[in-house]
C-alpha cells in the first residue's frame, strides 16, 4: 500500500522506454511498480515491459499523447481494481531522463512532509524555476509544465471521472489531444480542491527532446515545429471552447486565483509560496 505506480508512456521507442523502466526498477523498485502504456506503438516496437497496448486504429494512427496516455493507464488500473493499491502515481513520458539515484523515494518523502500536496514535479536543470528553489528545495507553484509528475491518489480521486473511466477523461481532458493548457487545468482543480502543486529539487528530471527532434518519423508524429504549432493551436481552441479563455494568460490568472486562495486557507504553508 505504500507503493507508487509509475506509468511510462511509449510510442515506438522500446529501447528508450526499457532504459527508463530499468532505471526505475534498479533505483526505486522497492517502492515502485512500473507499468508501460503503448500509445499505439507498432507491434514490433513494443517495450519489454509493456502492460497495456492502446491498439485501436486511432491510437495507432495518432498515438495518445500525455493526457490520453496517462488517462488510459490510470483507468486500466481502476478497471483492474488495482488503483487503490497505490499511494501515488508517477506519470512520465519515456523521454524523461532521471539522475543515477532513487527518484520515487525522495518524492514520496516530500509527499509525507506535505500532506496537502497533490502534484509534485521534479525540477530540471534547464528550468528557470531552479532559481526559486535555492534556499528551499520545495516550492508551491501555480504553473508547472512538465512530463513527469507524481500525483497523489487522494487528489486523483477527488477529481477523476468515475462515470466514464477511460482514456478521454479519467484525470486529464483528453479532448485537448496534444495537451497545451491541460496541466494548468489540473493544477487549478488541485488548488480548488485544497491540494497544492509543487516543484522540488530533491530530485531532478530532464526531458530529452532529441527523440522528438530526431526520431519524429519513428514515433509517427509530426516534426517538432509542426507539432509545436498544433499543440498551441489546439490548446487555444480547447481553452476557448471549454472556458471562453482567449489567451494562455487567462488560464494562468484563473489558476493563480485558486493558488492565492489556497494560502488564505493554509497559512501554514506560506513559506512554500513563491
Amino acid at each position: 500500500m505504500n507503493k507508487v505506480a509509475a506509468i511510462v508512456l511509449n510510442r515506438n521507442l522500446p529501447e528508450v522506454t526499457d532504459r527508463l523502466c530499468a532505471h526505475l526498477k534498479t533505483h526505486d523498485g522497492d517502492v515502485t511498480d512500473v507499468f508501460v502504456v503503448e500509445a499505439g506503438s507498432d507491434d514490433d516496437r513494443l517495450s519489454q515491459h509493456t502492460t497495456w497496448h492502446a491498439d485501436w486504429p486511432e491510437a495507432r494512427a495518432h498515438g495518445l499523447r500525455y493526457s490520453r496516455g496517462m488517462n488510459f493507464g490510470l483507468s486500466q488500473l481502476w478497471r483492474d481494481g488495482r488503483f487503490q493499491d497505490y499511494r501515488a502515481f508517477f506519470l512520465l513520458t519515456n523521454d524523461t531522463e532521471l539522475s543515477d539515484q532513487p527518484t520515487v523515494r525522495p518524492l514520496l518523502k516530500v509527499f509525507e512532509d506535505h500532506l496537502r500536496m497533490g502534484i509534485l514535479s521534479p525540477c530540471s536543470k534547464r528550468w528557470g524555476e531552479r532559481l526559486l528553489l535555492q534556499t528551499e528545495s520545495i516550492k508551491y507553484f501555480w504553473f508547472i509544465h512538465n512530463n513527469a509528475y507524481l500525483i497523489r491518489r487522494e487528489f486523483v480521486e477527488a477529481i477523476m471521472d468515475v462515470e466514464e473511466p477511460g482514456f478521454m477523461h479519467f484525470l486529464f481532458d483528453g479532448t485537448n489531444f496534444r495537451g497545451f493548457g491541460n496541466e494548468s487545468e489540473v493544477i487549478a482543480k488541485a488548488y480548488v480542491n485544497d491540494w497544492a502543486a509543487a516543484i522540488t529539487t530533491s530530485v531532478w528530471a530532464e526531458e530529452n527532446e532529441a527523440y522528438l527532434l530526431d526520431r519524429a518519423e519513428l514515433i509517427k508524429t509530426e516534426g517538432y515545429q509542426k507539432n509545436l504549432k498544433l499543440y498551441v493551436e489546439e490548446g487555444r481552441r480547447w481553452m476557448r471552447r471549454k472556458y471562453g479563455f482567449n489567451s494562455r494568460w487567462a488560464i494562468q490568472q484563473y489558476v493563480k486565483a485558486f493558488y492565492d486562495h489556497f494560502f488564505e486557507l493554509h497559512p501554514e504553508y506560506s513559506r512554500f509560496r513563491i
Binding site: W127, G128, E129, L131, L132, F141, F143, F180, R248, Q252
Partner: peptide
C-alpha cells in the same frame, strides 16, 4: 519567454516571473 507558449531554457516562465 513572455510570448513563448513553451519553455525557454534557463528562463523562469513568464507565467511565474511576472505576477
Amino acid at each position: 519567454s513572455f510570448d513563448s507558449p513553451i519553455r525557454v531554457a534557463d528562463e523562469l516562465p513568464a507565467e511565474i516571473q511576472l505576477p
